[in-house]
């Protein structure tokens, strides 16, 4: 129960920072996601109450945009760039390899909560294609052969 009150307090603080303004809903959700790595259901209820926006509308926004996740994500977000330049350089093979090695489908999180695999719309590093971004770091000119070692390194870092 104690954790619940902190989520509430934290969410209220975030809503207040954005002036309790309905048009700030997306920015508020972004800040909540920044804080928790996903959008906790409880936080969304608090946002609804604070902004006086029906929870159905918040749920709509939270599920409409790619950035938001209603489920906890892993420690490292593995983003396979799905930009055109990466695609023509064979990014789909990297995605398949990551799916096999991590034993998850795109959009899922590994059992040990280390990695969440997602496809991302063009990271705009087309000169380095194909790229994968892991925990914010760009891995340029990535080949399938490098993947096991890279994943091992992140696992080691914890």
């Amino acid at each position: 129960m104690k954790k619940a009150t902190t989520t509430e307090a934290k969410t209220k603080e975030i809503v207040k920072k954005h002036g309790r303004d309905k048009s700030g809903l997306i920015a508020i959700l972004q800040d909540i996601q920044e804080e928790y790595n996903y959008l906790p259901k409880e936080a969304l209820s608090v946002v609804g109450e604070q902004l006086e926006v029906p929870i159905s509308r918040i749920y709509e926004v939270a599920t409409f945009y790619n950035t938001f996740s209603l489920n906890p994500r892993g420690r490292y977000l593995v983003e396979v760039c799905a930009g055109t330049a990466c695609h023509v350089q064979g990014a789909f093979n990297l995605k398949d390899r990551l799916q096999r090695d991590l034993e998850i489908e795109c959009g899922q999180t590994t059992k040990d909560n280390m990695f969440t695999l997602e496809e991302v719309r063009c990271l705009g590093c087309c000169s380095l294609a194909p790229v994968v971004r892991i925990g914010g770091n760009i891995h340029p000119y990535l080949t399938q052969n490098e993947i096991p070692g890279i994943l091992r390194n992140y696992r080691k870092q914890g």
Binding site: P54, S56, Y59, E60, T63
Partner: peptide, 26 residues
């Protein structure tokens, strides 16, 4: 005037539902 239902997701996955597909309180 209660907005108990709304949309979720987008594209082919778009659907009408209650929030979180749970019982709506409102």
């Amino acid at each position: 005037g209660v907005s108990a239902i709304g949309f979720s997701c987008r594209g082919a996955d778009k659907a009408v539902s209650t929030p979180f597909n749970e019982d709506s309180a409102v």
